[in-house]
């Protein structure tokens, strides 16, 4: 087992979460951007409610601009990318320089897109860089425990976001199955990392394929509490 400091565990987990958050929110945002082409008012209010982001925007135009590019808006996509990059910078030695470079490229490209009139096209390299980041960590990282923690963060975020964004049930269940698989590795090897009560609850949700729409809040709560927050906080002290 490779040695990992408590601070790094925290950073690795949140690196995985933030990179995935950027990727998933970008994809969902693009769907709204597509609807906007013919001039229809994209229902951004519902989108914000789904992802639990307060509606501080004046109108669709303001939402399109600030939600994507405003670094001073803590809920913007670029703010999440900034947090991903910040976690990456303090993990250079774990994730390796090539992996970090893809986050830097994503940020540089993201910033260069501000003001574009063809955001989905111009942002393609941002998504490419994120794909490359995941390929790079899988290929270059030598500390497998650290890699597993990043993927744990990614799978928590993806299951959470897919459920919030109203993805079809089968897709959400696929992500829940994936999350349970990742978490199982920690249940077996590292007692205390996983909240066993919520883990069992999520396994029940996945195994019985219960109604996700009717139980959305409960399932989200279980996902959020799955990884013992205390564990990460304590480890970072």
């Amino acid at each position: 087992m490779g040695a990992i400091t408590g601070i790094n565990i925290n950073n690795l987990f949140w690196l995985g979460r933030y990179v995935e958050k950027v990727f998933t929110t970008l994809n969902s945002f693009f769907k709204y951007a597509d609807r906007f082409i013919e001039g229809g008012q994209a229902a951004y209010e519902k989108y914000l409610a789904d992802i639990n982001v307060p509606d501080i925007y004046e109108n669709s135009e303001d939402f399109f601009k600030r939600y994507v590019f405003d670094l001073s808006d803590p809920n913007s996509i670029i703010s999440n990318l900034d947090r991903a990059l910040g976690n990456g910078i303090v993990l250079r030695e774990e994730i390796k320089t090539p992996s970090l470079s893809y986050l830097q490229m994503a940020m540089d490209r993201f910033k260069a897109c501000e003001g574009t009139t063809k955001i989905r096209y111009d942002m393609l390299p941002v998504r490419d860089a994120i794909y490359a980041f995941w390929g790079s960590v899988d290929s270059n990282m030598t500390n497998m425990d650290a890699l597993r923690i990043i993927h744990l963060g990614k799978s928590v975020e993806r299951a959470d976001m897919y459920l919030r964004l109203g993805y079809p049930s089968e897709e959400v269940f696929t992500q829940l199955d994936n999350l349970i698989k990742h978490v199982s590795e920690f249940v077996d090897s590292d007692a205390g990392i996983v909240n066993s009560v919520t883990f069992e609850a999520l396994k029940y949700v996945a195994d019985s394929r219960i109604d996700l729409i009717g139980n959305r809040s409960l399932v989200l709560e279980n996902i959020e509490n799955l990884i013992e927050v205390n564990f990460f906080e304590a480890a970072a002290v």
Binding site: A3, T5, G6, I7, I89, V90, R92, E93, K96, T97, A236, V237
Partner: peptide, 17 residues
């Protein structure tokens, strides 16, 4: 600091570690 940790295989730590 981080680049040398990566290149030498030393573990990058802060005092709390």
């Amino acid at each position: 600091h981080s680049y040398f940790a990566e290149k030498t295989g030393a573990i990058l730590v802060q005092n709390s570690d």
